[in-house]
């Protein structure tokens, strides 16, 4: 199962997908509120925390009766996958975390997630301002509580068609959560793939996670940026292949 990170949808996996589909059954999905998901299922309360998104993963596994899956999560989805595996460990055989971070905040003196609270608040504000240009920015006010699926469809179908009204709760849940305490409870064999130069999730964060998760390995991929699965799809694929076979 390939789980996309914050800011995009399942399209993020498109570069890696061709190498996987010949040998594996691959499940792709969009979290509720992302991509082409049915946004009428969005529940403000449920998606306030990453647990709500973890429930999406479990709901899909339940619906498709999936067992012994290899869960590959990018960025925040690594943490979402961890929550899901802690809740229903029997479903997960292995977890691959691509560019994960359990906490983006700097919490001195022991932990440096890379960002101050001000930075993350600016990010939410920046997102809001970038989303004003979206067609349905004011739509929920005009339409009332019930989302009209027809109108949602009118949303830009292009890459990363993230609906601003749902992206902000996702951003809040992603960037303001602190999931460090859960790491040591994860028993599922886990591989952490970290980029050698990623200003969202540094190697130090990868090392921290590797230390905390009992059954984990860390691989640092020499690359720039946070989206390893897009920029280094073959390297990521090979690493995953070696890990699961």
């Amino acid at each position: 199962m390939l789980a996309h990170g914050f800011g995009c949808d399942q399209n993020m996996w498109r570069f890696m997908l061709p190498s996987l589909t010949s040998d594996y059954k691959v499940v792709l999905f969009d979290y509720v509120g992302c991509g082409q998901s049915d946004t009428s299922a969005f529940d403000r309360k449920r998606y306030q925390t990453l647990d709500g998104y973890a429930q999406d993963v479990l709901d899909i596994c339940g619906e498709l009766k999936l067992q012994n899956i290899v869960f590959v999560g990018h960025s925040v989805s690594s943490i979402i996958g961890m929550h899901a595996a802690l809740k229903s460990p029997e479903i997960f055989s292995k977890i691959v975390m691509v560019s994960p971070s359990p906490c983006f905040l700097n919490l001195p003196p022991d932990y440096f997630g890379g960002f101050e609270k001000d930075d993350l608040e600016e990010l939410l504000n920046l997102m809001d301002k970038n989303y004003i240009g979206w067609a349905n920015y004011l739509a929920p006010l005009v339409m009332g509580q019930n989302n009209n699926p027809e109108l949602i469809r009118e949303l830009d179908d292009s890459f990363c068609s993230t609906d601003p009204n749902y992206a902000k709760p996702f951003a809040k849940a992603t960037f303001f959560s602190d999931d460090r305490a859960a790491l040591s409870k994860l028993d599922t064999p886990t591989m952490i793939l970290q980029s050698s130069d990623d200003n969202l999730a540094s190697i130090e964060i990868g090392e921290y996670m590797n230390k905390q998760i009992p059954n984990s390995t860390l691989e640092v991929i020499k690359a720039q940026g946070h989206c390893l699965h897009m920029t280094e799809p073959n390297t990521v694929f090979q690493a995953i292949k070696n890990f699961i076979e």
Binding site: G7, C8, N11, G114, D119, L126, H226, C227, M230
Partner: peptide, 29 residues
């Protein structure tokens, strides 16, 4: 660019550029 802008770059602008070749009218600091 600001740190917040760098997250926005990594999570939105760069993926969009990699996939579609361009990205229009994004606000950054």
């Amino acid at each position: 660019i600001s740190k917040a802008s760098s997250i926005f770059f990594e999570s939105y602008i760069r993926p969009t550029i990699v996939s579609t070749g361009s990205c229009q009218e994004v606000q950054i600091s």
